[in-house]
Design a protein around this nucleic acid. Structure first.
Lengths: 238, 238
DNA sequence: CACGGTAGGTGTACGCCGTACACTCGTCAA
DNA sequence: TTGACGAGTGTACGGCGTACACCTACCGTG
């Protein structure tokens, strides 16, 4: 018995084991009770042991996000863009329902994690494959905003540094570094399309206000159409 | 000079002074450096003094949210619903740009504050005044989701208890208490409309999945239309 | 087989946080 | 004059993230 306990305890810690335990703990007990100390206790280990595998708590959260974003179904092949996008987004939504802490966690990080970038990149890819111009694909990604994962109006928005100093912190936009661009070609494509889009842009890659109004008007126009048609929810599918 | 300092220090603390100082501190230094201790120091007071005016930090955050939501412009009178709604939402967006910590703060609270309810109620009011059925108005509010304040897919969603125990916590839906319903008549109206909407609903007031797909399809259909029309951002307004 | 380096787990400690609780002290009604 | 009361104070506690020094079991090399 002592042997067994020791064997269990000896199961080696690893970044992956830590990340999955953290996700499980957040799912079960809520994100606010995910502390390094609680997590370590769940793993039968002393808190500082975790730091041999994750740099700090922020990096732990990033890792957790990558884990759950990795649960989103891969894109369906050989279907129209609309069906592909729709399926993917509904799958993302299911993931979010399994991990209710995720939207807030994702939104509170101030940069996208690799898995998230991959998800977004493949979404842009689906649009491009469907014949969308980089221009339209770009605005569509903004318009989707919160729908696209159920969160985050502006994933790359500078104002997303919500937590950080409100003071001006005018780092150059820097597009993204070439090796990142290589891994996420569709994102890179719409990013450059946006950056020499027109002259109204100062230093930023895209015009926030325009994107916001684009999405807002897309919705309002759709709503207006429903209203004029006398839409009612009784023609509910299924 | 000592006199003056004393006079300054004697400026009596009040809930309002605390709330506005807290908003200013969060604007300037970021929400993560808003601690009861820092805030008290800004006010020239000892931390525990704050607790004579706010119950705890959560209530402080609620108060801050009410302050900033109160900055949103009142609805314009005698304009079409579309213009009214559009203006209001753009005003909300401006407020959010002044207070970049607000979206996260709002999303992280697990229930709406009074000012927020008032804002939503008046938004529903604008739709109803424009001739929308309670049914359509209800779905539209869901569809607006993150647009409506720039945040929060599901303001009333039970899954919004993101921070709390993921375990089942099946409180009765309880609509809302009558005195609240009286203060926010339009919200109450669409809430009851949703609750005896159809039989597919189990205990919850509305069908999350339906609302999500409603909004998603509204966007996708609008996007499809743009795509077919060969939309391009060069016909940019202004 | 001996050994030294190294990776992974430990223990202690520090400075921050929110806030409970007991207190002081100035003001004002009786 | 007094005494109650409400605003601000001081002290203290438990929890947090994590820096830093330490131990120790293992493994490749001589």
């Amino acid at each position: 018995m002592a042997e067994q306990a020791e064997t269990l305890r000896r199961t080696p810690l690893s970044r992956d084991r830590i990340l999955h335990a953290a996700v499980a703990l957040a799912d079960l007990a809520g994100i606010e009770s995910l502390s390094m100390r609680n997590l370590a206790q769940d793993l039968g280990v002393v808190p500082m042991a975790l730091y041999k595998h994750v740099a700090n708590k922020d990096e732990l959260l990033d890792g957790m996000i990558d884990v759950v974003v990795g649960e989103i179904d891969p894109p369906v092949r050989d279907a129209g863009w609309k069906h592909t996008v729709r399926r993917r987004i509904l799958s993302a939504r299911e993931m979010l329902r399994r991990h209710p802490w995720a939207p807030l966690a994702i939104e509170s990080r101030n940069m996208a994690t690799p898995a998230l970038l991959a998800y977004l990149d493949s979404m842009v890819g689906a649009l491009r494959a469907g014949g969308f111009s980089t221009d339209l694909a770009h605005h569509v990604m903004h318009a989707m905003g919160s729908r696209i994962l159920g969160f985050s109006q502006e994933l790359f928005d500078a104002s997303r540094r919500a937590g950080r100093s409100g003071a001006t912190d005018p780092e150059p936009p820097a597009a993204f570094p070439p090796e990142v661009a290589a891994r996420f070609p569709h994102l890179a494509e719409i990013a450059v399309a946006a950056s020499h889009d027109d002259a109204s842009v100062v230093g930023q890659g895209c015009d926030d206000q325009f994107e916001f109004e684009f999405a807002l008007d897309l919705l309002l126009d759709g709503i207006e159409r429903l209203h004029q048609e006398g839409w009612t929810s009784s023609r509910r599918p299924r």
